[in-house]
Design a binder for these strands. Structure first.
Lengths: 189, 189, 189, 189
DNA sequence: CATGAATGAGTTTTCATTCAT
DNA sequence: AATGAATGAAAACTCATTCAT
C-alpha cells in the first residue's frame, strides 16, 4: 500500500491521531499498526512530536500550495473564491483524517513547533483575505471587512471535517457547490 | 471568587484544558491551580474524565437551553436565525475557554460518555435545522438543504472559538451582526 | 536504621553507585533496595541526577567544612597539615562509599551540576594550598610550589578510597600517622 | 593517522570514554567518530565491553612492561624509584585519556574481565613495593611499611590524571622531578 | 476536609547487538 | 567490508487514583 516505510508509519499515525487524539495514541499503538517493534519506529521518526509536526506540515502545505496558485490567477474574484472553496473541500474530504490532525491536534506541539504550523495557517487565511479584498475593491463583492468575511467562509469550510461522511448522499463537489452558493448569495429568498 | 470549591476546580480545569489540552493537563496541574493537594481533589470530583464530562455537558447545555426557547418563538425564521447567531456568539465569546473544551476535547471521553455529549450537540444542530427549515417552508429563505445550510452557518459560528480575540477591535455584537448579514445576503454586490 | 526516607534512599544509592557505578545503577535497583516502587522514589528525589548531585555535594561539603576551620587556626602549618591529613582520612575511611561516589562518579553530572561540585573541590584544594604556602612562607617547610605540593599530598590521600580496607591490619589513625610522616620527612634514610 | 581501523576505533573510544564515561558513550557515538555505521563496528570489535577491556589492558600493560625492567636493574633503589616516578609520569601525561579510562572506567567491566585488569594493576603495585622494600632492606630508605609507602607515592602519581594540564607551565619532566624530591625528602625545612 | 505517601501500569526513548543484503 | 533495518530488553520518568491518618 504505502510506497515506503515512513509513509506507512505516518498513515497509521494519522489514523490513530484522528481516532484517539495525539496523546491518547502511544508509540506502541503506531508500532502495532505497522507491525514493527516500538524501537524500530525510531529509524524513521525522530520522536513522536516530530511525527505530528511532519503530518501537520504536510497537511497545511497541501492547503497552501494550490491556493497560492488560485489567488494569483487573473480571473474574477468570484471565480477564484469558488475555486478556493472547491479546493478546500477537495483536500478536506480527500483526507479527512489528516485534516483532523491539522485542525485539532497541532496545537499540542511545543510552542516552537506549533509556531511553524501557525505561520502556515495564518498564511492560508491571508490568501483567502487577498481574494476577497480584491473582490471588494473591484466591486464584485459588497464592501465590508475582508478578514471577517474570510473567517466566516473559511470557518464553514473548515467545520466540514467534523461532519463530512464519505458515505453520505452528496458528493464533495455537490456540497462545495452548495456552500459556494450560500457564500455568494446568502439564504434570503 | 468561585461560589464553591467544585466551581473553582472546574474553572481551573477549563483554563488548563484550553491551554494544554485534556491529556497534557495532569491532575497535579489542576491541584496546583487551586492550591490543593492532588488527593484532596478527589473529594470534589470522581475522576479526571468525569470532570471533563461535566464541563462539556455544562457547556453544551448552555448552548441548547436558550436556542430551544428561540426556536419555539412565533416570530419570523429570519429573526430567530439572527437571534440564534447572536446567542451563539454570546456563549462562545462569553466563555471561549469552555467552548474550546467542548469543541476540541470532548471527543477524548470514552465512547459512553462522549455519546452523552454527542447527543446534545446533535440536538443543537437540529434546533438550527428546525429554524432554517421553517424559513424555507414559508419562503422567507430560498429553498434548499436545511441541514447543509445549518452546518454552513453553524460552522462559521463555531470556528469563532479559534480566532476570537477579546482585545480585538470589534465587539462580539458587531461581529455577530456582520455574520448575520453575510448569512442572509451573501457577499455578492 | 535511617532516620528518614530520603536518607534511606541516599544511602542505598551511595552503596549501589559505589558498587556498580552511577549509570549501571537503575532507579529500579535503588527502589528495590529500599523496598519501594520505582514511582514512589520520586516523592523523595527529583530525578536520578539530582540524587547524585545531592550525594556528591554532601560529601564535598563534609570535606570542606572542617578543613576551613583547620586552615584558620593560629597554629604552626606543620600541625595544621597533620590535622588536615587526619581529617581527610577520617572522612574517607568513615564513608568510603560516599567518597568513591564523589571522586569517581560526580563527573557524570551535566556540565552545570558538575560545575557546582567542581567549584567545591577546587575550594578544597585551595585550603590545602593555603596551609602549605603559609608553612613555606614562615620556613617551616622547604620553599617550593605550594600547589604542586598540595596536589602530591592530596593525591596520595585521595587514592586511599581505592585501596583502604576496613578489615585491614591498621587503623585509619595509624595509616594517617604514617602518611604524615612520609609527607613531612620523605623516605630517605 | 591510525595505522589501521581498529586503532582508529580504539582511539575514538578512549576519547569518548574519557569525556563522557563508558556507559554514557553509545556504540553509535563511537561509530560516528570514526565515520562508520554502528553495525560496521562489529567487524572490528566483539562488543563494547571487550573494547573497554582491550583499552584498559593495553594501558596497564604499558605501565607494567617498563616498570618490570626498572625493578630488575642492579642500581640503587633510590635511582630506580626516581625512574619509576618518571616512567609513570611519562605514561600518564603521554596519554592521559587512556589512563583515565584505566583508572576510572575499568571497574565497570564484568567481574571476570575486571579481574584481568585487577591482577595487572596489583602486579604494578607489587613492582613498586619491591623497589621500596629493597631500598628499606639496604638502608637507602628509612625502614617502614613498604606497601603503605608504595600506596602513598603511587597515589600521588596516579592522581595526576585528574589535574595534569598539557598546556600548564611545567613539563611532565619538571613535575616528576618535583614529586621525586618530595617523596625522597619530604616537605620539612 | 485535607494530606501525602504509595502504587502499578503506563509513557517515550535509548541502545547493544544481529543479520540479510 | 559495509550497510541499515530490525530487535527486544531496559532505561528514566509520569500519572491517575487510593487510602490511612
Amino acid at each position: 500500500m504505502a510506497t515506503n516505510k515512513y509513509e506507512e508509519i505516518a498513515r497509521a499515525a494519522i489514523q490513530l491521531f484522528d481516532e484517539k487524539g495525539y496523546h491518547a495514541t502511544s508509540v506502541q499503538d503506531i508500532a502495532d499498526a505497522v507491525g514493527l517493534q516500538k524501537g524500530s519506529l525510531y529509524h524513521y521518526i525522530e520522536n513522536k512530536e516530530e511525527l505530528l509536526l511532519r503530518i501537520a506540515s504536510q497537511s497545511i502545505n497541501g492547503f497552501n500550495h494550490e491556493l497560492e496558485i488560485i489567488r494569483n490567477r487573473k480571473t474574477p474574484a468570484r471565480d477564484r473564491l469558488i475555486q478556493a472553496i472547491h479546493h478546500h473541500f477537495n483536500i478536506v474530504t480527500g483526507d479527512i483524517q489528516m485534516t483532523t490532525v491539522l485542525l485539532r491536534e497541532a496545537f499540542l506541539l511545543s510552542d516552537e513547533q506549533h509556531g511553524i504550523i501557525k505561520k502556515a495557517t495564518d498564511r492560508y487565511l491571508d490568501l483567502w483575505v487577498d481574494i476577497i479584498k480584491e473582490g471588494m475593491d473591484n466591486q464584485e463583492f459588497r464592501s465590508g471587512d475582508a478578514r471577517l468575511t474570510a473567517l466566516s467562509i473559511l470557518g464553514s469550510c473548515n467545520w466540514v471535517y467534523r461532519w463530512y461522511d464519505e458515505h453520505g448522499a452528496r458528493t464533495p463537489q455537490q456540497i462545495a457547490d452548495y456552500f459556494c452558493d450560500l457564500s455568494l448569495k446568502g439564504i434570503l429568498a
